[in-house]
Design a protein around this nucleic acid. Structure first.
Lengths: 393, 393
DNA sequence: CACCTTTTGACGACGGTCAATCATAAGTTG
DNA sequence: CAACTTATGATTGACCGTCGTCAAAAGGTG
């Protein structure tokens, strides 16, 4: 049966051949013909199509093997642009990127999500247009928009569902509103999910199973399994902030339970603990500043937060068996104390099989993880085989 | 090279049209044309192909709407058979099923996995052949074999990796050995994973995100996310037995840590606790028997085990956001005490968004979950669009 | 029974892909 | 520089899958 597989007939359209080039590496026509199994003439025709759409461009000549050197072709990320929108509880981060998520122009500013969808989204459309201009691109070059929101989102419809910190946004048709203005596809997801996506695509594209953990005022995570973001039944997957921490003190959490991870290890929780110890710490940023200034009490508190986080992440490791955990969010900027605490507990509490190939690292995308993820989500939608085929006809 | 595989199985579409019929429902040519958007003549050609391969058969006429009544066609599950093999620590369960996982012949018997791969696998080949004969099928009708093993398995290669209870099986090429005998594709996975698959396919096919939990001598789980089994980076996902239980007593676990779920809530752990209370309980089966006989101490112990399980499952719910948790394994046969304890804690400890659509139920496939899953895994491989296209050419 | 509706199978047309061929371009090797 | 090697573009006929049409078949309706 399997043997017959190799006789299976004809492959691929132009859109699928294009997927091979998305990694940015230049390839010759012969390369593509060998990989796809198609005739050289067919490949040549597809190259012409993709070139005339501007999606690929000649990338110089490869080295000769004795005769005429072959011409190579590579993905041309600058062909179009997308708008990436990362909305947090109190800030907004906009970026215009090319199709390889290179940031062409960006804008970061305080903005309260609680102002409601009308105010926030009209701010987005206004500054989205301006940013496009700053990047020197025209509206017709914009092919899609990706948005991250600080709450649970049903990804298929793009509507927030019962978002605790932005109640006015419940069930708002965010894609519809933005599409009316920009005239393109609009993809929406949870902010932690898009951070996970951003980190995955830009820093760890070859990893298939990873967990991205955002530690800031709250705590959340995004799950990549088998190479893709997993959102769960209602889009609420990764919500680890309210998992009970084993052996934690019975601290009251805003969710009503006691001993939640967020109540003992979030930036807010650490700040509260430091105030109780007589230090001046109101916000997560204050905690980071204290630790960076070398304050021992703050460092010790952060390491303990790491241990508490670690005891929850150990459970996540057992359940998901990722090969990578990435720690992001503002608290991750406070140095190695947090991650040291995490490692301490995770490697002790998990089985060897799950930890032998497990790395635990800090975010590389840092504050840009959100927009990079929003960009990646928008790009994915637009560079799918079907979308490419539609574009070039 | 691997990329090539991504392209080779890009078929003409007969295999893909066949996927529509896999649900067993009869459809007319017009139905299929409407669904796929292809011309009726094209559909007719594909029907002919699939008919001549025996994969589908006429299923009578649909009711007329005024003119000639259309003929309907339906998947013919009896066209081929697969062998399903569920190997536990101390027992073996074999089944020959048709392509809809209907059991045609089965065999369940004690067998020690610790006897090693040579002894066990030759037992499997011998009795596999006999079972095929019992079912009245010939060797050439067998198209694939699915195997479940009680330990971590790298699914892509089918090799066990560091299996704690079957060390002699480490890195053994199980698919290779069985393929040499049966001459078909052989798929291998962890036993809990195939139970999850079996339960999912036979009882909850429409659920996209669920968690199957096996509670027996040990505790393990299988994850279905976005409709498919997720195995993690090394195939060890779902290994919840060694997650720390919050507020649990510091019971020593065989893994070296203390307070593991398996050490406080497994059949073995409950039996140990009951012995300490003066009851006669050596195995998980004894625990089930005691509870069924109405023993109050045993019932209370099981309910507490449910609570402990629940506190771990609450974390899993927060992380994965499933819409269903299925409890299987022998302990699940002891009635509602266990599941009552689970519900008690899960619904209290998880956020409303995650629990509002969450059901927690006992397994419907029961003892057959394993072979049904092995069967489903084998069938999936053989009824994929690419495999069908290869078959009918 | 004649007429209508709908399905079905057969046929020819169309378009995409392939394999082969040739002339030409653009390098390397001696 | 000449000979050789390899890549490219253009062209061709053949093949295969798909589509649309049309007449025949099969049943309902009056």
């Amino acid at each position: 049966m399997e043997e017959l597989l190799k006789f299976a007939p004809r492959p691929t359209g132009a859109g699928e051949m294009f997927q091979l080039l998305r990694d940015g590496q230049p390839r010759t026509r012969a390369d593509l013909a060998a990989i796809t199994g198609q005739a050289r003439s067919t490949i040549a025709a597809r190259i012409d199509l993709l070139m005339s759409a501007g999606l690929i461009a000649p990338a110089g000549e490869a080295s000769s093997t004795g005769g005429r050197p072959p011409a190579t072709f590579a993905f041309r990320p600058g062909a179009r642009v997308v708008l990436a929108v990362d909305l947090g509880a109190t800030h907004a981060h906009l970026a215009v990127t090319d199709l390889a998520s290179n940031v062409l122009a960006e804008l970061e500013t305080p903005l309260a999500i609680a102002d409601g969808p009308d105010a926030v989204l009209s701010w987005v459309t206004e500054h989205g247009d301006k940013l496009l201009e700053t990047a020197g691109r025209r509206r017709h070059e914009l092919v899609s928009v990706g948005v991250g929101l600080p709450g649970p989102v049903e990804h298929s419809t793009g509507r927030p569902i019962n978002p605790p910190i932005m109640p006015a946004w419940d069930d708002v048709d965010v894609p519809g509103i933005l599409r009316r203005h920009f005239g393109t596809a609009v993809l929406v997801d949870n902010d932690v999910n898009i951070m996970a996506l951003g980190e995955h695509r830009t820093a760890w594209p070859e990893v298939t199973d990873m967990l991205f953990v955002k530690v800031a005022t709250g705590i959340g995570s995004g799950i990549i399994a088998d190479g893709e973001l997993r959102r769960g039944a209602q889009g609420a997957a990764g919500d680890i902030g309210h998992i009970a921490v084993p052996h934690a003190p019975d601290v009251q959490c805003r969710c009503g339970n006691v001993g939640c991870l967020e109540a003992v290890a979030s930036g807010q929780a650490v700040a509260t603990a430091l105030r109780a110890a007589g230090l001046d710490a109101a916000t997560s940023a204050d905690v980071v500043a204290l630790v960076r200034s070398g304050d021992l009490v703050a460092s010790r508190a952060l390491r303990q937060a790491g241990r508490d986080l670690g005891s929850v992440l150990a459970a996540c490791v057992s359940l998901l068996n990722p090969s990578l955990i990435v720690i992001g969010g503002i608290i991750a900027d406070a140095g190695e104390h947090l991650i040291a605490g995490i490692r301490e507990v995770v490697y002790q509490r998990s089985l060897p099989l799950a930890t032998q190939h497990l790395r635990i690292v800090t975010s590389q995308a840092r504050a840009r993880a959100g927009v990079l993820g929003a960009s990646a989500m928008a790009i994915d939608h637009v560079l799918s085989p079907a979308a490419i085929d539609a574009l070039i006809t």
